[in-house]
Design a protein around this nucleic acid. Structure first.
Lengths: 109, 109
DNA sequence: GCGACATCTCATCGTTGCATGAGATGTTCC
DNA sequence: GGAACATCTCATGCAACGATGAGATGTCGC
């Protein structure tokens, strides 16, 4: 039922490129199995570095590097345990995580 | 329980690492702005390579490389235009895209 | 068939990202 | 205070990634 004024297919060369910078940045954070594992573990509650390093099978200074990236992106934050300050417990920043999820959903929608 | 009357926090060193391989793989595909832009454009319908290259501001052979990765992952598929076979039109494979989205949601949930 | 066009593949190169090791900071316990 | 522990930061080497150019394949119009 399409009116056929033109039979030739006409690629549109004037389309606007979508803004996917936020989604790509969020995906880059999730693209590493260690960082994805961190975020998945923190979805169930707070954990200290040594717990996550053991569960994920990586060294602690390696994990700390990945945590620094997530921290700089505002996705997680750390606080020392009240009873034993040796342990740094990380938790997710749900607002930032939700924003990342929304940006990704906008692309995969 | 492990300790006696101890109030010391006891990090659990026996936690199982979550399986985030699928999510990380999906995120790696979305982590490049060109590939994210492709998927976002294809969410609105099929497009040929030259259209997407123009909209995203990249050269066609560059875009073709990114399309090859999405194709290998099964996320998109290509077919020539019926009326003018010069143009390859790409469309999303919604089942694979939905699986990627589910894997990412499992991490960000 | 030939020339123009659309797209792909491959090799290369510069850049980025990750794991590692060493050293620094902060915390607890004695 | 000092030892042991938990974590961070920084510099380095290596592997993966992305952009580019050249050449190959396939399609169209003449």
């Amino acid at each position: 039922m399409t009116g056929k004024l033109s039979v030739l297919p006409t690629p549109r060369m004037d389309l606007a490129g979508p803004d996917v910078a936020d989604a790509a940045a969020a995906a880059a954070l999730l693209a590493d199995p260690v960082r994805a594992g961190i975020l998945r573990m923190l979805a169930d509650g707070r954990h200290c570095v040594c717990e996550m390093a053991a569960a994920l099978g990586v060294r602690e200074n390696n994990l700390s590097n990945h945590l620094a990236r997530l921290r700089n992106a505002g996705m997680v934050s750390a606080s020392r345990h009240e009873a034993n300050g040796r342990f740094l417990y990380y938790e997710r920043n749900d607002a930032v995580v939700a924003a990342a999820r929304a940006a990704l959903d906008e692309v995969l929608r």
